[in-house]
Design a protein around this nucleic acid. Structure first.
Length: 242
DNA sequence: TCTTGCGGGTGCCGTCTCAT
DNA sequence: ATGAGACGGCACCCGCAAGA
């Protein structure tokens, strides 16, 4: 008995020798039948294991998504990614949890409701490092092409967590779009840019939040916000005193 | 023997800590 | 709130080792 096979090795094996249990040759006219039996056995055992893995992975995915409060559409997208990873035999040498986490990360980006690698790693049992590595691997192997995450995608979530109005959101997005035109966002962390834009907009529209609060929800430090907003206010010539 | 994944070393850049 | 310097992550490259 072994635990390395899902049924603990208890299932009957049809071996490859054309002998019956007494060691007698199996008549040639029955060999085609035996061949078919072996084929079916292989098929059933493998699909059984695949199904089990899939079932486990999908429940894991469900757990992670609900902890992140993600909508059903994102879960669907993530399972599609996961299934194609399985079909393309990309799981080998990687943990199911890792691939699940990476699929989820990719799905969030595709659905424009990005979560950071940190947030994904938080709810799964996988390190941020591994999520990122597996994600890069998946996108490469599956030819998934995702544009870099735009700071704009983070605005609605951060804004609602901060209790900021729709006007502040719109203004933030305007700021970000102008910044992107001037290339101020390349190489900058999208969460940092989003945080700075929200901070600026909140001040401009009289709904001021402290850098501390904004930094908190965006998962960056106050310093990052200061650096970003300094760049933004200078380069965009907003001419507004904060 | 060849392939492929992984760890380690390096340089760059953003982020963080700390002092003011 | 701000600035200076340290830290840490990531991309990139290389060599090693395990599996086919």
């Amino acid at each position: 008995i072994t635990y390395t096979i899902h049924d603990k090795g208890l299932s009957t094996m049809i071996d490859w020798r054309n002998k019956d249990i007494y060691g007698r040759d199996i008549p040639a006219r029955n060999r085609a039948q035996w061949y078919r039996l072996r084929k079916w056995q292989r098929k059933i055992r493998i699909s059984g294991a695949t199904e089990r893995n899939l079932a486990f992975a999908l429940s894991e995915l469900d757990r992670d998504s609900s902890r992140l409060g993600l909508p059903r559409s994102v879960r669907e997208a993530a399972s599609v990614v996961y299934r194609s990873a399985v079909e393309n035999k990309l799981i080998r040498g990687r943990s199911i949890e890792g691939v699940v986490a990476a699929s989820l990360y990719a799905a969030c980006r595709r659905c424009k409701v990005p979560r950071t690698l940190d947030e994904i790693a938080e709810v799964s049992r996988v390190s941020k490092k591994e999520v990122g590595r597996t994600y890069r691997f998946l996108t490469r192997e599956l030819n998934i092409k995702l544009p870099p995450t735009s700071p704009v995608d983070y605005v609605p979530r951060f804004a609602s967590e901060l209790g900021l109005s729709g006007e502040v959101q719109s203004r933030s997005i305007e700021i970000i779009e102008k910044a992107m035109e001037k290339g101020l966002t390349s190489g900058r962390g999208p969460t940092g840019v989003a945080a700075a834009a929200l901070y600026i907009a909140s001040v401009l529209l009289g709904e001021r939040k402290t850098q501390r609060d904004v930094a908190e929800v965006a998962g960056v430090t106050e310093v990052t916000i200061r650096n970003r907003y300094k760049e933004l206010t200078e380069q965009l010539e907003m001419g507004v005193t904060l």
